[in-house]
């Protein structure tokens, strides 16, 4: 295990799901040979459409799913090592999820979970300090303790809940925040303030964020590096300006072209290929994008493309092999 400067290093991680029962199973490679690294104080975006495997990776990192193969190293220790020191790991790696209403138990008050975190990780010396501590953290996201005290999730708005969610995640001063589509269910104005919050935390707290999204606009706005995923593979990865302004992989190009622009003179692409059945696409031999790619050739359907480095950007496409 070579010591690196990376905070989190993922190497050739694979996750295989078996669908079906008894004698007949189909194996779906939800995540296939995915490798990337996140440095300290870096916002790294994992982008892709629904069902491409990004949430699965998040769950594997957090320890809610078991990887089938590959290595994960956090702070120079393997994930196996961290499994024994689970509480310590959780303290350093926190998460925020997509649905603010689902993130809180509908039958419990919202501040309950705050107190849980505080007590379980001994974040304060005695009981009296708990409330001021929590209040201070809430102020950082624009809330206050009185706003959430004894309130049930149904009594608060999505925006408030999502901010509370983030505040809870930051209670333990983590070094890595896994944010799984944190702004998808939140309205536009709040979206920007949350994303700005991430940027601020990166500067002030040296926080790294694994920002999972399908919204390329915010990704471009806030992240340092980006990896684009398609059906379990990373198809392009590099600095965010390079990848989004000058996409090389046909899929990234498609994504960039799909970003709606308030410009009546610029229309969406003429011909769009509709996606195949998800399961079939996963099981395709060769490049998984071949079914939708307008530039696909014969060899794309047969050979699986390898990664190549092009101008500092990692691309997985036969056109660059």
């Amino acid at each position: 295990m070579t010591a690196t400067e990376e905070l989190l290093q993922i190497e050739r991680v694979t996750k295989v799901f078996t669908v079906g029962s008894f004698f007949f199973k189909t194996r779906i490679n939800a995540v296939e040979n995915v490798s990337f690294g996140i440095k300290p104080a870096e916002i790294f975006t994992l982008a892709g459409e629904s069902g491409c495997g990004k949430s699965t990776i998040a769950k594997i990192i957090l320890g809610f799913e078991e990887k089938t193969a590959g290595e994960i190293v956090f702070e120079n220790e393997s994930i196996a090592h961290w499994r024994e020191k689970r509480q310590l790991f959780i303290q350093k790696v926190q998460a925020v999820f997509q649905n603010p209403f689902e993130s809180f138990n509908p039958l419990c008050a919202v501040d309950d979970i705050f107190f849980e975190t505080v007590y379980n990780f001994h974040l304060v010396q005695n009981e009296k300090e708990a409330i001021p501590f929590i209040d201070e953290r809430l102020k950082a996201v624009g809330l206050s303790f009185s706003e959430i005290h004894s309130r049930y999730p149904s009594e608060l708005s999505g925006g408030q809940l999502q901010r509370a969610s983030i505040a809870r995640a930051l209670l333990t001063n983590p070094s890595l925040l896994v944010a799984d589509e944190p702004v998808s269910m939140v309205d536009a104005s709040l979206r920007m303030s949350i994303v700005n919050l991430f940027a601020r935390l990166r500067e002030e707290m040296n926080l790294s964020v694994l920002y999972i999204t399908h919204d390329l606009a915010t990704a471009y706005y806030v992240s340092d590096r980006i990896a684009v995923m398609f059906r379990g593979n990373i198809v392009e990865m590099g600095p965010v300006e390079e990848v989004l302004l000058n996409p090389r992989h046909p899929y990234t190009q498609l994504l960039r072209d799909s970003i709606p622009e308030a410009n009546p003179h610029r229309k969406w692409k003429g011909s769009v290929r509709v996606a195949n059945v998800e399961e079939e696409e996963y099981l395709q031999k060769g490049c998984k994008f071949a079914g939708r790619c307008s530039l696909a050739e014969e060899r794309c359907r047969v050979d699986f493309p390898q990664e190549t480095l092009v101008d500092g950007v990692l691309v997985r496409c036969h056109r660059y092999n």
């Binding site: 303290q91 998460a95 999820f97 689902e102 993130s103 419990c108 979970i113 975190t117 995640a169």
Partner: peptide, 24 residues
């Protein structure tokens, strides 16, 4: 459900989680 994940991330152990979060 997601609040289970959040509960785990808040440091709750299994027994306590099931008791406090699920019982209601």
């Amino acid at each position: 459900r997601e609040f289970t994940f959040v509960a785990v991330l808040s440091g709750m152990r299994t027994m306590r989680l099931v008791w406090k979060q699920y019982l209601p």
